[in-house]
């Protein structure tokens, strides 16, 4: 699945990033991470390890104190900024506008870029069908379940056809059954669109099921202490969750995570 041909340009490149808060707390220390086209990378770590901060820096939602970030479409030498919509972000909360319908919520990123409803109609309808919400385009977020809201949020992140999709513990608030279903749908979506994903999580199982690379972080200061590849082929389904391969990876990742907690 992964397109890690030697010499391929990373979609996203973070080089020895430091993040120090004004009060002196070091959130990130010398964090370096390259993500290649087509990868599904999980950032896994205990709370407070700065994984969400790293993601926010990647998205440009917060600044960093030192180091370099190379976002998709960005060229520092030529002074070209990343285009809005080249990065999709799915937050911990669905973060939907309560006053907009499902359709208009998904339309929002396009509207901000000057694309009218009429022009966007077909694209939005298609993406809503893909996330399984074709029949809910006129509903308001208030009328949807937690899982459905998250699907709307994913549809909104994908509607701009981003080069990179960042996800910050998007399923943490969902029940396990909903989470398993939506994880599997996410994988199908990822394969169908050929996108690149960085997925922040604190669940070993979630990271093993989803990713082809798991980057484990430790806290105080936030840093990367190792990474584990998951070579199991996609599509992955419920059968993968009970395979010896899955169990073995979970054990390895857990061991690394334990080291992260002790260090």
């Amino acid at each position: 699945m992964t397109d890690m041909t030697p010499g391929a340009q990373p979609v996203m490149r973070m080089q020895s990033l430091d993040k120090v808060y004004p009060n002196g707390t070091v959130a990130l220390k010398k964090l370096s991470l390259d993500v290649y086209p087509g990868e599904f990378v999980s950032l896994l770590g205990p709370s407070g390890c700065g994984k969400s901060t790293a993601l926010k820096i990647a998205a440009g939602l917060t600044g960093h104190s030192a180091g370099r970030v190379q976002r998709p479409g960005e060229d520092e030498a030529k002074g070209i900024r990343a285009r809005a919509g080249d990065i999709g972000f799915v937050f911990q909360e669905p973060n939907l506008m309560p006053w907009l319908t499902v359709f208009d919520n998904v339309h929002l990123p396009l509207k901000l870029a000057g694309v009218s409803r009429a022009e966007a109609r077909a694209d939005i309808a298609a993406i809503l069908d893909t996330v399984g919400l074709g029949g809910f385009r006129d509903s308001y977020p208030r009328e949807l379940s937690g899982g459905m809201k998250m699907r709307v949020s994913i549809a909104r992140a994908l509607v701009t056809k981003p080069k990179l999709l960042l996800m910050d513990e998007p399923f943490a608030a969902l029940d396990e059954i909903t989470r398993n279903k939506i994880s599997q749908d996410l994988l199908e979506l990822w394969q169908a669109t050929g996108s690149t994903v960085i997925f922040v999580t604190h669940s070993v199982f979630e990271s093993v099921f989803l990713s082809n690379r798991i980057v484990v972080m430790a806290a105080r200061p936030g840093r990367i202490i190792g990474e584990i590849g998951v070579a199991a082929p996609y599509p992955r389904d419920a059968a993968f969750r009970v395979s010896p391969d899955y169990t073995a990876h979970c054990r390895d990742v857990s061991a690394l995570l334990t080291r992260a907690m002790e260090s």
Partner: peptide
């Protein structure tokens, strides 16, 4: 809402867009 502001920042909304599409409806 802070999270909704992040959405606006992510899509590089202008001051006016932020007002029109977030602040005003939230204030309604």
């Amino acid at each position: 809402d802070r999270g909704l502001q992040d959405v606006m920042s992510l899509y590089q909304a202008s001051r006016w867009q932020r007002f029109r599409h977030l602040q005003l409806p939230a204030a309604l």
